[in-house]
Amino acid sequence: MTLAPGDQIELRVTPDRYVTVRYAGASGDFNPIHIDEEFARQVGLPGRILHGLWSMAQVARAATEAAGGDPLALRALSAQFRGMGRLEEEIVVSGEVRSVQDGVATARLEARQGDARLIRNAVAELRGG
């Protein structure tokens, strides 16, 4: 798979209502804002919110799939966390390959959910350019 500048990246995923529970167990991040509806509301959130690193993992998946699916294609990924991710609402990860040099493609990505940008200014370096 050869990536070229201008290549578009897109991944759509809808987190189901228990994804934060599974991710808490898988990752070890049991912050109650992700798994306890009552606690989340008590601290002023609209309800349980997604883990930022789960959302970043969706950006990693989108970049990896764009590179042909080799899990080792992803050499580096940076991201800024912004809006709070909600359950049961579709997330759209989108991006574009900006440059390719010495077989390494650099892509810019973001993750949106409705009007909220959950992840912005993400930069992925991918082998396979």
Binding site: L72, R75, A76
Partner: peptide, 13 residues
């Protein structure tokens, strides 16, 4: 506390 940003650079599987 909020997680503001994250960066990873991978070298070995």
């Amino acid at each position: 506390l909020v997680h503001g940003a994250q960066e990873f650079r991978w070298a070995q599987p």
